[in-house]
């Protein structure tokens, strides 16, 4: 649970975790992965591409639905998680650790202020908005 406390959250149910001072991991929350059901396919851009805060960067497909992935931050993708692309079930089993999706070099660290902390995210979930 400790890591979840360090994470930032978007209202599209993505999380951000600082890796180094300006590199972050990005993934989707347990709430999102539980709601999607069995995840069958993840489409991510290649490393080297830019992402923009709150804009789409990929797609995630479950047996129930296809959903867009929205980047919680802007920056350049330094790495993608090949193993989660190969075995999407990892995401359901470990959304906060092995199931990370991409690593991004931040363009503007202040964008993190537009995101929620764990406490805010939990009350956001309770308020029933999604």
């Amino acid at each position: 649970m400790s890591k979840e406390k360090e994470m930032y959250y978007s209202d599209e149910h993505e999380w951000v975790l600082m890796k180094t001072d300006n590199t972050v991991f990005i993934g989707i929350t347990k709430f999102a992965s539980d709601n999607l059901g069995d995840i069958v396919f993840i489409e991510l851009p290649e490393a080297g591409n830019d992402v923009t805060q709150f804009e789409q960067f990929g797609e995630i497909e479950s047996v129930k639905a296809v959903s867009e992935l929205y980047s919680p931050v802007s920056g350049n993708i330094s790495q993608i998680n090949e193993s989660v692309v190969q075995n999407p079930e990892i995401l359901s089993d470990s959304p906060y650790e092995e199931g990370w999706l991409i690593q991004v070099e931040l363009k503007d660290k202040s964008e993190l202020e537009n995101l929620m902390n764990l406490k805010d995210y939990e009350s956001f979930l309770e308020s029933g908005k999604d």
Binding site: E61, S62, V63, K64, A65, V66
Partner: peptide, 13 residues
């Protein structure tokens, strides 16, 4: 299979 991409689940997308 891959029905999620079809209209009845994905509606306008």
């Amino acid at each position: 299979t891959m029905q999620t991409r079809e209209q009845h689940i994905r509606r306008e997308k």
